[in-house]
């Protein structure tokens, strides 16, 4: 399966150990979710982009964010015209709605930048290894899925061709719905039977989730040399945002 991972471009997000990277990105994400004021959010967005973009292949990240820039623009325009809180209007663009829309758009772009930087620099196999270290079965489910989805896709193509030779068409919405059912039901039934076979194979090969301890050994611990600065920085980012959020809510400032 094709994933969002892009092979090594040489940024520092590539070199970080997995646990440290995900921990610091999660803290940055929490910091973003707690920043509600537009000025704070704008500053945070700039910090995030400066921190994340050079470390994860720069232009790749920005090209993936391009669609969200346009969607953000759409959100701002939509809310500036239709938001019910609009009172001050310039022609038909309301200022309150535009402000609300820009907060949402900036938050969206920051969240996507963080998530994409994690997925660009980490191959899915390693993320599943992280799952395996929490629970063995969880990791197994993810690893089995990687092989299972292409099989289902092929099954879908086969079924679609078989049904088309029997005269299936989809021109209007009712026909489309019937076509959907005619294609998905055989795929589901075949998938269930395949599941039975694969479960028997797992049993025959002696899969017992209690014995697997590989994943835990292959992952570096959180607090290692080389990732400490980033963890401390993201912790500070989170704490500052949390205190700003609490201060704004409790009207300390």
């Amino acid at each position: 399966m094709k994933s969002l991972y892009i092979a090594e471009k040489g940024g520092y997000w590539y070199k970080l150990p997995l646990k440290a990277k995900f921990f610091s990105l999660a803290l940055l994400l929490l910091g973003i979710l707690f920043s509600a004021h537009q000025t704070v959010l704008l500053f945070n967005l700039l910090v995030i982009l400066l921190l994340v973009a050079p470390g994860s292949g720069g232009m790749v990240l920005l090209s993936r964010l391009k669609a969200f820039f346009f969607f953000g623009l759409f959100i701002i325009i939509f809310h500036s015209i239709l938001n019910p809180a609009n009172t001050i209007k310039v022609y038909f663009f309301g200022l309150e709605g535009a402000l609300y829309g820009s907060v949402v758009a900036m938050r969206l772009i920051a969240v996507v930048a963080i998530a994409q930087s994690a997925l660009i620099t980490t191959p899915p196999k390693k993320i599943f290894l992280l799952f395996s270290s929490w629970n063995k079965d969880l990791g197994l489910i993810m690893f089995l899925l990687v092989g299972f989805i292409p099989v289902l896709e092929q099954e879908l193509v086969n079924t679609s061709q078989a049904q088309q030779t029997r005269g299936l068409t989809w021109n209007n919405i009712i026909e489309k719905l019937i076509a959907y059912l005619a294609m998905i039901i055989p795929v589901i039934i075949k998938a269930l039977y395949r599941a039975q076979g694969m479960a028997a194979l797992l049993f025959l090969r002696g899969y017992d989730s209690q014995d697997r301890i590989m994943a835990k050994r292959s992952l570096k611990p959180l607090w290692v040399k080389g990732s400490r600065i980033l963890i401390v920085f993201s912790l500070l980012f989170f704490l500052i945002n949390l205190s700003l959020f609490a201060g704004l809510r409790l009207k300390v400032w």
Binding site: F148, I184, A195
Partner: peptide, 20 residues
């Protein structure tokens, strides 16, 4: 094992259903 595989199939059907 069958339970694990049913979860796998369920996820697969979700994704394939959305794609279709």
């Amino acid at each position: 094992n069958l339970k694990i595989l049913i979860i796998v199939v369920g996820i697969g059907i979700n994704i394939i259903g959305g794609t279709l």
